[in-house]
Design a protein around this nucleic acid. Structure first.
Lengths: 199, 199
DNA sequence: GCGTTACGAGTCTGACCCGTATCGTATTTC
DNA sequence: GAAATACGATACGGGTCAGACTCGTAACGC
């Protein structure tokens, strides 16, 4: 966060926290309403937030810096696996993919896909969001191996991609409109657990 | 295709096919070079193609129509499974995901993710590109079931998502930078075939 | 050669935007 | 109350772009 730093004392009028909030919220709202990242203008954000442009520039160097702060808000909280059944924990984690506390996140996430590949900053932000989630899943898988529920010779990283991929392409890319998104987490986890080869 | 329609005869000078080509190529080149869809301007395309702006507007109603035509060029050819081993055919199809004949496609595809969710036209285009590929995989899976190689009770659609998802998130979203993209198709197919549960 | 249409290049108007500066006002410390 | 800093609003110069238009030229059928 650039604004509202830990200023020890200030002579004049302090920065408005309400303005901080309003700017961030306006940014996320506009994104969720369909604006793409680059179509987003400081002027539109200022108007939407009921704020002068100068108030934004006083806090952030430009659109990129503002976006980085705004998107950080979408991280949300991590799902907490119960720790009893490996299968149930995986269903929980897989079901949480792309499902954020902030409903706007679902609509904003697809917009990040292009940005992630072009801006190192945004790539880092993106990774910082998903890597703790990956870690959570990794721990569940390792636990499953330790408990003997999962085979010991599986590639944990590949398995995570296996579990995450289907949910992500469905939620973010609408890969197959006919797929039942509701039931998908369970079905994915069970299919990955059991395999599809006849035996 | 909007331009170079099947005009029976025309009094004056015919439209230049070279201009058609140049405009489409310039569009794809600019996209592949990192321009995002909306940052792409008709002016830039015209300049790059060595063409007047009017020549573009004479053929297409606007940027969207041009883009639709340009992106159709990226469809590429479908991978042809050999039809011997179900496992090998799946590896081939999974390996072909996100790998297009046109090397520009790989860089352009991530940009489509946001557009797909906002424009009905682009969503349709996107679906028209991937649905034949899905069909191909569907047939291989059905064949596997018929031959008794795959279990008869699997959900074919979910299985396709299972196979496609990991490749797609890796190639398009760079989901996990540490994952070996080269070996991924084989690993994904084998993991899905065998399952990860200990037995 | 004549009418017709396309061509590349360029111009023009009206938007929209960025980032800065400047208003008059409000809120804080000393 | 004075100095300092914030506020929303607005104006500014500089920039890009969409689309429609205008050139003089080129290619076609008749």
């Amino acid at each position: 966060m650039t604004s509202t730093a830990d200023a020890p004392r200030s002579p004049g009028r302090p920065r408005s926290i309400r303005a901080d909030e309003a700017i961030i919220e306006a940014t996320l709202d506009l994104l969720a309403e369909g604006s793409t990242i680059e179509a987003l203008s400081i002027e539109a954000i200022a108007t939407r937030a009921g704020v002068g442009k100068a108030t934004i520039y006083r806090r952030w160097a430009g659109k990129d810096a503002l976006l980085l702060d705004a998107l950080r808000r979408l991280k949300g909280v991590l799902a907490q696996p119960a720790g009893h059944s490996v299968r149930d924990d995986l269903v929980l984690l897989v079901g949480a993919i792309g499902k954020n506390v902030d409903p706007r996140a679902a609509k904003i996430m697809p917009c990040l896909a292009p940005a992630v590949n072009r801006s190192a900053d945004q790539f880092q932000l993106y990774q910082s969001i998903i890597s703790p989630r990956r870690q959570l899943m990794r721990e569940v898988l390792r636990r499953g191996i330790d408990e003997g529920v999962l085979r010991a010779d599986i590639d944990v990283e590949v398995t995570m991609a296996l579990l995450t991929g289907p949910m992500l392409i469905q939620r973010v890319l609408q890969w197959n409109p006919d797929l039942d998104e509701q039931a998908l987490p369970e079905r994915v986890v069970d299919a990955v657990l059991e395999g599809i080869r006849a035996r």
